[in-house]
Design a protein around this nucleic acid. Structure first.
Lengths: 342, 342
DNA sequence: TTGTACGCGTTATCAT
DNA sequence: ATGATAACGCGTACAA
């Protein structure tokens, strides 16, 4: 009978009085139930229910020097990629005693550093950060953080603690290899934002081209502006005017790929015959597009879920699940847009 | 000189000792600077900087019975619409002393109620909730919350406190009127999720049709499944098989519209000649698509920013900026996809 | 303007 | 298994 009697704020003191025990016992009943006799435990639970008691997180954090917050630092609010990651994060945190505290660095390492300081100050139960390109100060802070730290979106050497992601370099190489395998001989590269992860994709693209004995020529077109569909159209236009021989494009993400496709249609360039298009992330729209667009599938939701799970495991002192670095891989989803045939 | 000397945790006590004043003075220098002499204030600021002091939010919340959190309850993580709202929210909160605490209700009023209880328990500085369809319990809680409350995304009667949004009903009516004005005589409706806001759009569609002396026939196709581009394609297919006379579709959002467009292309249905398409929200891709897609522009970022600003104003006890309900309106952005000519 | 001292609600240590 | 009680770090009357 949850008698929603939240008149003023009911405290642990009230619960204790109601049951006829001390606050210490109530506290224990909440934190370490096994230390309280079943009988008392039941009465306390009943009292909590009828009184509608809810613990004060601030008092709890102050007394225990430990908050029930899991801090998460992401680079961007609007980038759809992170929406899926957040979906996984919130799903995994749901039902646990922990709540998520989100911060956005806007792709600024300095901003990330400030957020890290701010969050660490709250003695979070765990912290999730994006990628591996932190400032030295941030590295130090995270290195000596006294809570589980998980890096997401990417794998790399020397994790602070744990890591869950994939190799952007490898993914780009495999995607590029796919284009070449489909018979494209002059693939170009479309990039926006060009944050470190994006740059590693560019390296993958370049290395794969060389490895296959091809030249990139003037077919790499990038901008530091944030990505968008419109920008994809624009970049393709630029690329084609500079390098008309281009017969395919590897796009840094799906927005650019979609924009490139629309631009190709506008120019009556046939996809995939005259222009192959490959995106990155494999957002839902890619398979629905006409023609269906090839992309590199990444496991974004799984990274979010996994990160939280890693933290929960660490807090439960479960054995460090085998490897500290979990590589979720990727998958080139070949669709019509790169089906050159031939 | 931010001498990042965060050895262990520096407290207000340390700052006070360093300067040679009491902790009370340091506290005041932080909360009510005008109560501290400029000289001392400067020395305290310097000490804070060199020591790298950061206040403990938990202690602060406990002592002041007021946290520096602004709670925000949104229905969905993955719906792009809210990414823009969040963008505005975080942008407006940036640089203030407040930080954002996000919760997702997954379109469940009950879940929203639980989140409200949870958040209210932390005595937030303010709270932002989405829409007007709360449970009675939530209504009560928000009605007697002792902090500013802002409802976003929608306008309506009887705000708990303040409101910033627009009329989904009106927006749908105007969009429908646009289709009719373009010469379409048998417009259909494609809807997904069908949460209350979406339903109000459907009402707007229906009422406008009637007002113009048209029948909706069997041209309203909806599902409670979450929206996606793929679903847009599917729904259009269903609609056309049931009501082949359909000459235009008003889609509940841009994803559905995009999916409808792709499906039209697959069926060699000419847009806008044989089929007009209108989306909702006017996400960035709409203008970039080929053909460019008509949509109803909504001011999502502005709603987010505005909501935080309303809270900040209320906290600063600024005069309740004129009206408690701010209607940001909307705008039908007519593009090729509804240019039937005619 | 500045300092003293108590309280915020909970956890944790030490007894019992 | 349960109960006193001292922290936890900061805000805020009240006093000086």
């Amino acid at each position: 009978m949850a008698n929603d009697n939240e008149n003023k704020s009911i405290k642990m003191r009230d619960v204790a009085d109601h049951v006829g025990v001390s606050v210490a016992t109530v506290s224990r009943a909440l934190r370490n139930p096994e230390q309280v006799s079943p009988a008392v435990r039941a009465r306390i639970a009943a009292a909590i229910d009828t009184l509608g008691y809810l613990p004060d997180p601030a008092a709890r954090a102050l007394a225990s020097t430990r908050s029930d917050l899991i801090a998460v630092i992401l680079p961007s609010v609007s980038n759809n990629v992170f929406a899926d990651v957040m979906d996984g994060i919130y799903a995994a945190a749901e039902g646990t005693r922990y709540s998520v505290q989100l911060g956005y660095s806007r792709y600024s390492p300095l901003s990330e550093e400030n957020l890290t300081k701010l969050f660490l100050r709250q003695r979070p139960a765990g912290i999730v950060v994006t990628g591996i390109d932190q400032t030295d100060a941030t590295k130090t802070l995270l290195g000596q953080a006294n809570c589980p730290v998980v890096q997401i979106m990417e794998t790399g050497p020397e994790p602070y603690d744990r890591m869950i992601g994939f190799s952007h370099y490898d993914a780009a190489r495999v995607a590029t290899a796919h284009l070449i395998a489909q018979g494209y001989r002059a693939p170009g590269f479309l990039g926006a934002r060009m944050d470190p992860r994006t740059q590693r994709r560019l390296h993958g693209f370049r290395d794969e081209l060389r490895a296959q004995g091809l030249e990139e020529g003037r077919r790499v077109h990038t901008t530091t502006r944030p990505s968008s569909v419109t920008l994809g159209s624009y970049l393709l236009g630029e690329l084609l005017s500079v390098a008309p021989e281009t017969d395919a494009v590897f796009c840094i993400n799906d927005d650019l790929a979609l924009g490139a496709m629309f631009e190709a249609q506008r120019r009556n360039l046939r996809v995939p015959e005259s222009l192959g298009i490959c995106g990155f992330n494999d957002m839902e729209m890619m398979g629905a597009a006409e023609p269906a667009l090839t992309s590199v599938r990444t496991f974004r939701r799984e990274m979010g879920e996994g990160a939280i799970q890693m933290i929960l495991d660490a807090l439960a002192e479960k054995a460090p699940a085998s490897e500290p670095v979990l590589d979720l891989g990727f998958e080139v989803v070949a669709r019509t847009s790169t089906q050159r045939g031939g």
